[in-house]
Write a protein that binds this DNA or RNA. Structure first.
Lengths: 225, 225
DNA sequence: CCAACGCTTCGATTATGATCGAACTATGAA
DNA sequence: TTCATAGTTCGATCATAATCGAAGCGTTGG
């Protein structure tokens, strides 16, 4: 009867506090068990299970069985981008969950956005790559140039492998704290993994923050700032 | 207790079908009265009034009194961008309100996104301006180059006036039907207004579609395609 | 001033869905 | 086998909020 896509269904899915908490927790990029998600949402296991089946029916999350655990994760990076966009809008309007806590500055500095680097550092990285002509942007799509391919290879990233995957290599993702783009896509994921692998940074065991070591931060800034 | 922005509140606001319908109707760019919005949402006036006050409290819409009417409109283009992003996600996932009707192709070809041109034509326009170096994009932000400023002036647009406004001149907006960017911001608005003014196109009186005249379409395509 | 109109507010009803206890299934360990 | 853990399903309860009738308020037009 009405024209256009149905945004109400997604709104409903995201609109419940328990589900929103779960989705936010899953933005940490790790696959979590139902029990962990119940804890994150502050509800019992039964309730969480009910929410998870709704999220799964709406194809916002997927589950993967492993032994007697079921690990849940965001269905794909589209979901991550959408959530980050919503967070950006919310943050911008002052819809904050509570007053910004002590962890907040760390989050704004560097955090994981589903599977790639976000926050101040994420934006710096993106800006630098664009400025150096390593990637070219056209709206939300972005492509890795020949020059960028060289640079990534020099950093120890297997570009050919990334290209073989179904998901796009480069993607611009709107950063909610910086209100500018940072790098998503399989390259975004690979870069973050590389930083961790090199010992530049490690992921906060619970939460989305990324902690750079002293030397790692210096190396990162020297290279991308 | 939890970190980050609260996406649940926005989800709740968008998640009610009646409110979603109203917001979609307001994406048409026109300010609508409470009665019109009630009709669009398929609810009574009282119910609509209740929804509108919630939307207003959430700063998604603003009202403006005029005589004994109250005109409602989206609060600003941030809201429009957010809604378009949600629609893109929804459309992409097959969350359609019904099976695409006969109006759908017209919408995909050219429609209004709050106040600027979207759909195939909107994306063509954007791509062309980028390709010609009239605007430069960096993520969601975009700037009008000196070259672009000349071109816009030649088209009869008062660029100085646009720059004087508070809202950004150029902005990339993710198009839900094309899944690429089109041009938002005050320039996007001004361009659409200019097309209408020149008689190239006119806005569907009810609905979001934009109908190009035969000659208008030819002129548009010659210039931007 | 009165009547019509546009809209909001109030109040009552109703429907939806979030929640959790309890029972059930499945996997793994002893 | 038995027990423990992880999770789902069922059912009942409960709270929220969507809905609309009726009344109230402000504006316009006669």
């Amino acid at each position: 009867m009405k024209e256009g896509p149905d945004i109400a269904q997604i709104g409903t899915l995201v609109g419940d506090p328990a589900r929103a908490n779960m989705l936010t927790a899953l933005m940490g990029g790790r696959a979590l068990t139902a029990t962990e998600l119940a804890g994150a949402a502050g509800v019992t296991l039964q309730t969480a299970s009910s929410h998870l089946s709704k999220l799964e029916a709406g194809r916002l999350v997927t589950q993967r069985k492993q032994g007697r655990h079921r690990y849940f994760a965001l269905a794909d990076d589209e979901v991550g981008l959408m959530l980050e966009a919503l967070m950006g809008f919310a943050a911008n309007r002052g819809f904050l969950r509570a007053r910004p806590g002590p962890r907040d500055p760390a989050l704004r500095k560097a955090r994981v956005c589903y599977d790639h680097l976000a926050g101040d550092f994420g934006v710096r990285l993106f800006d630098r790559l664009v400025a150096d002509g390593d990637i070219e942007t056209a709206g939300e799509d972005a492509v890795l140039t020949a020059r960028g391919e060289e640079r990534m290879t020099a950093l120890g990233i297997d570009v050919a492998r990334l290209k073989g995957q179904r998901r796009p290599v480069c993607r611009a993702c709107l950063d909610w704290s910086e209100r500018r783009s940072h790098l998503a896509g399989s390259l975004g994921e690979a870069l973050l993994a590389r930083f961790v692998e090199q010992g530049w940074a490690r992921r906060d065991p619970d939460g989305r923050a990324i902690r750079f070591s002293r030397s790692g931060e210096a190396a990162f800034l020297a290279m991308f700032s």
